[in-house]
Amino acid sequence: MLPTGYVAHRTGDRVRLRIPARKGDTAYFARVEQELAACGRVGFVEANPLTASILLHYSGTEDDLRRDAVDLGLFTIEAIPPAANPALNAAAARIDQIDRVIQRSSNGSFDLLEVAFVGLVGASIVQALRGQALGPASTLMAHALAILALHRSRRERG
């Protein structure tokens, strides 16, 4: 069975592939380099086993590259890269879900960013009133201002 790779990015004829299952396999990537270098559509190829990547200048389409890779017995290419950071992706999905609930329950008046901002400013005021102005209060206010800056940049982008 051939290992599965994906196109990390493509700009013109410059393509970077990743084959995570073969990371660190020096012999495999040396073979890939040799086989692809002999391919007529390849102008340049450089494989890096440490990063499991292949950089090449390829004059064909992505479908041509898929066929060439399989015909040479090197790898298959997935359309979508495998999920990275599954724990972070799961957390982000959950936070997005909370954001949608807040927006829906407030009829679009608030979102999670605004709730976090108001909560941080309020907590900062409470800490300042308790005499903790230089520790917790300033940290909470700094986080609130970071949210404000994020909100402004999103607003400017439309």
Rank of each mutant, 00 (worst) to 15 (best):
M1C: 11
L2S: 04
G5I: 06
V7W: 01
R10M: 00
T11E: 15
T11Q: 13
D13W: 13
R14C: 05
V15W: 06
L17P: 10
P20L: 04
T26Q: 15
A27K: 12
Y28W: 11
A30L: 07
E33M: 06
Q34F: 04
E35V: 13
C39T: 13
C39W: 08
R41E: 06
R41G: 01
R41A: 10
V42H: 05
N48S: 15
P49A: 03
P49W: 05
L50H: 06
T51D: 01
S53Q: 11
H57F: 07
T61S: 15
E62D: 13
L65H: 04
R66E: 00
R66K: 05
R66G: 00
R67S: 07
R67F: 00
A69N: 11
L72R: 11
L74H: 05
A84E: 05
A84Q: 01
A84T: 01
N85C: 00
N85D: 00
A87L: 12
A91R: 10
A92P: 10
I95P: 01
I95M: 07
D96T: 11
Q97V: 10
R100A: 14
R104F: 13
S105K: 03
S106G: 02
A116S: 12
F117Q: 14
V126R: 14
L129R: 15
R130Q: 12
G131S: 12
G131W: 12
Q132M: 14
L134K: 05
L134H: 09
G135D: 06
P136W: 03
P136V: 09
S138E: 08
H143A: 11
A144I: 01
A149P: 06
R157H: 14
R157L: 12
